[in-house]
């Protein structure tokens, strides 16, 4: 039930941000997603920008573009071949970029929901090694997160990025834990304007 409640909150937040969405480009991201660096996985996501402004900090300095967005993401990663993790995450992201540079940096506060399915008991046949899962357990976690992302536009439509997230895993039914998650991927900026 808790899981559905979290999903509901995320979706409402998402619609709220989407309603205010006014950018002409919609970034779509695809990344390698490594929990504690190497537990392998993938992540997809997008960004719903709801505020953008420019500021020149000093005379002769480059103007900087500031941007606030809500970034929903879906991730899947494996741990040890017996733990499968499905994660939904929503970041409130603040991005800053010098307009004459192609680099940018983003800080984000996020909240995620993670469902872990683990094979706790399995058997194999001694004749041929064929394996059968005997018992599986599911754990549910809430993941508040703090992230830093660094990116580089290789073209106006494409940027590469790496992102580091520190996230405690909180659960009412399992031991709390934490992890450092690393994301390396690319974002395709899909044009949403009709012209």
């Amino acid at each position: 039930m808790k899981a559905y409640l979290f999903f509901g909150i995320f979706i409402l937040l998402g619609f709220s941000a989407r309603a205010q969405y006014r950018a002409s480009q919609l970034p779509l991201s695809l990344a390698y997603y490594g929990n504690i660096l190497i537990n392998p996985g993938v992540k997809i996501g997008t960004e719903w920008e709801f505020r953008q402004w420019e500021k020149t900090p000093a005379q002769n300095a480059s103007p900087r573009q500031h941007r606030l967005s809500l970034d929903p993401q879906l991730a899947f990663f494996q741990q040890g071949g017996h733990r499968s993790n499905f994660q939904f995450h929503l970041d409130l992201a603040y991005r800053i970029q010098k307009l004459d540079r192609r680099r940018y940096a983003t800080w984000a506060l996020g909240l995620g929901y993670l469902q872990q399915s683990q094979v706790v008991n399995w058997s194999f046949n001694l004749s041929d090694g064929s394996r059968q899962d005997v018992e599986r357990t599911r754990r549910h976690y809430v993941l508040p997160s703090l992230s830093y992302e660094w990116g580089f536009f290789s073209s106006p439509r494409l940027n590469w990025y790496s992102k580091f997230s520190f996230a405690p895993w909180l659960s009412a039914e399992a031991a709390n834990t934490l992890s450092l998650q690393v994301e390396i991927g690319l974002k395709w900026h899909w044009s949403t304007s009709k012209n």
Binding site: N121, W122, S123
Partner: peptide, 17 residues
């Protein structure tokens, strides 16, 4: 030995605390 067709039960030893 393919004749030894028995199942061995295994625990994934992944302590939580």
């Amino acid at each position: 030995d393919e004749e030894v067709s028995v199942d061995i039960d295994i625990i994934t030893y992944n302590p939580q605390t």
